[in-house]
Design a protein around this nucleic acid. Structure first.
Length: 509
RNA sequence: GGCGCUAUCGUCUAGGGGUUAGGACGGAAGAUUCUCAAUCUUCAAACCCGGGUUCGAUUCCCGGUAGCGCUACCA
């Protein structure tokens, strides 16, 4: 078939272009997800491009963190590039623009940075001296080896206007006179972000640029670059920013690990739940749906559903929670992670919802590695029996360690004997219950119904309420008052362990 | 300082010239239950302010305020 004649509508090409200067940030992850959703929804291509033109700040650790985070989220891409490999392309575009007279060499020594940040009123939109330099003079100084930055010659005369249509923010118009003569090339010959980004977007035939709203005002510069280089600008869609409860942009320095994707992974979030949560920040399916699978998100996604106001990630700003070490001390007592109230309550709820809707086998598989890593030897068979007992009781996968701890240990850690005393009862009643329980449980079949009948009958014999019968047993066996339902628990624990623990408890009374 | 973007319950959001302004999380109360969860029911909770346009604005327009972004030879 003559594929050249195939005029099927162009498939969208989108990209995620992080600069590897830190771990994968939750905001970046959301940007990736929205791009990915758009690509998958429309049968397009997802491109991952490392924007690593800032050699000073790039690190391998950061690149790893990005890959690690995306891998955990289970997000894939179709093409991958590194800007540092494409310098030639960038310089070509700069040259093209320069030859057209749309850029000029600026021989002013580079600003020495930092200190003049406060004196920003000294900001200049353009430098007439350099802008007006004759080509001859410019060439002469270049030939003499004088370093220069290449600046875009913004068409500031004649009240010109730059415009583009943003899929989220609508028509955008700005007077060219308000745009500074931004740099294209640094004096060391390296391209700036603006140039490299546009050159690559043009070369990779990116059709839609979906990125953070912090780039909205940069977009005018990008439109200028595209047009100067002879390309039609792609479609733009800017995303509202994710901010902290204090309204400021999320940053590791200010807000700690809650802004890093791996923190959520390590805390026991399900990747699909985390993606679900991120999607609901700044986007809405507009039908009151909240819990959604990956496929449902793909099917529902559209640029029209994106809104314009920044969204707050509602984590707790308690510094203490951030300081708590992730180390485990001793077995049994696994108070290891930052308390769950660190995270956005809605993220937690969504996670719990996703956990509840997972088949037992699947959940078990996800729980097992966590339990083993904490030092407990549990067989998959046993875990498979434990999972249904805790599934409704955990919000994070890691909660398995505190919700099911008593299933994993041989010896229960010490607990307060007073807990054994039932409601409206006393120590004597507790002792009576525990002794009765020993004799009853020595013979009954360890299955839900027989246990239920036997224990209720025993309560009646003792002339106490069922609840008063169950509580001492529960505490004896679990080491605490709050635990999964008793009969199922006993069933999993088995007769031997149950009797041993009750005997120990009886000795405490 | 200049330029721009934004503004609905505490938070995420739906809606839109006339609505009891809807949903969700979280909160409160209750039901259920062997505890805890889960589940169910109920309740409290919002249109930033001021002008205009209009018979009527939370919705449209303008201004203010606030927040955020850009204003680097960072991205």
């Amino acid at each position: 078939m003559p594929e050249t004649l195939n005029s099927s509508p162009a498939k969208p090409r989108v990209r995620f272009a992080p600069s590897p200067t830190g771990f994968l940030h939750v905001g970046s992850a959301r940007t990736f997800i929205f791009n990915w959703l758009y690509a998958r929804r429309n049968g397009g291509a997802m491109i991952l491009r490392l924007d690593d033109t800032d050699v000073e700040r790039n690190t391998d650790a950061s690149v790893n963190s990005i890959f690690e985070g995306l891998k955990w989220l289970g997000l894939d891409w179709d093409e991958e590039y590194k800007q540092s490999d494409r310098g030639t392309l960038h310089r070509q575009m700069a040259e093209t623009i320069f030859q057209k007279g749309l850029a000029y060499r600026d021989f002013t020594p580079a600003h020495t940075g930092d200190s003049e940040r406060s004196g920003a009123q000294g900001t200049w939109l353009f430098n007439p001296g350099m802008r007006e330099l004759s080509r001859e003079e410019s060439d002469r100084r270049t030939a003499a080896g004088e370093p220069f930055a290449l600046r875009f010659r913004v068409p500031r005369e004649g009240g010109q206007i730059v415009r583009f249509t943003d899929a989220v923010y609508g028509e955008q118009v700005k007077a060219a006179a308000d745009i500074e003569d931004f740099a294209l090339l640094r004096s060391d010959g390296m391209p700036t972000y603006h140039l490299a980004s546009c050159a690559d977007d043009a070369d990779l035939r990116i059709s839609h640029i979906i990125r953070g709203q912090d780039h909205l005002s940069n977009t005018y510069k990008h439109v200028l670059i595209f047009e100067a280089a002879g390309f039609a600008p792609p479609q733009f869609a800017h995303l509202p920013l994710l901010v902290a409860p204090d309204g400021t942009k999320l940053s590791k320095r200010r807000h700690g690990p809650v802004v890093s994707v791996t923190t959520y992974r390590d805390a026991g979030f399900l990747p699909e739940a985390f993606i679900n949560f991120l999607c609901l920040l700044g986007w809405s399916p507009k039908n009151d749906r909240e819990q959604m699978t990956r496929q449902e998100l793909i099917d529902a996604f559209s640029l029209e559903g994106i809104n314009r106001a920044n969204a707050v990630v509602n984590f707790k700003e308690s510094p203490s929670s951030v300081v708590i070490p992730t180390l485990t001390e001793g077995k049994g007592r696994n108070l290891l992670f930052a308390p769950e109230d660190t995270f956005d309550p809605k993220a937690l709820w969504l996670n719990a919802e996703h956990i509840r809707s997972l088949p037992i086998e699947n959940l078990t598989q996800r729980l097992l590695p966590i339990v083993r890593e904490a030092g407990f030897n549990v067989t998959p068979e046993k875990m498979l029996r434990i999972t249904p007992l805790i599934r409704e009781r955990i919000k994070l996968l890691r909660d398995v360690l505190t919700a099911a701890d008593f299933f994993f240990v041989d010896q229960l850690p010490p607990y307060d004997p007073a807990e054994l005393i039932p409601q409206k009862g006393d120590a004597a009643m507790a002792k009576k219950v525990l002794e009765k329980a020993q004799s009853v449980l020595a013979n009954v079949e360890f299955k839900h119904d027989p246990l239920d009948h036997a224990l209720r009958a025993a309560a009646q014999e003792l002339g106490i309420k069922a609840g008063q019968m169950f509580q001492p047993i529960r505490v004896a066996v679990c080491g605490r008052k709050n635990a999964p339902p008793l009969f199922e628990t006993l069933e999993v624990l088995g007769r031997e362990t149950t009797l041993a623990r009750i005997k120990m408890a009886a000795n405490l009374m």
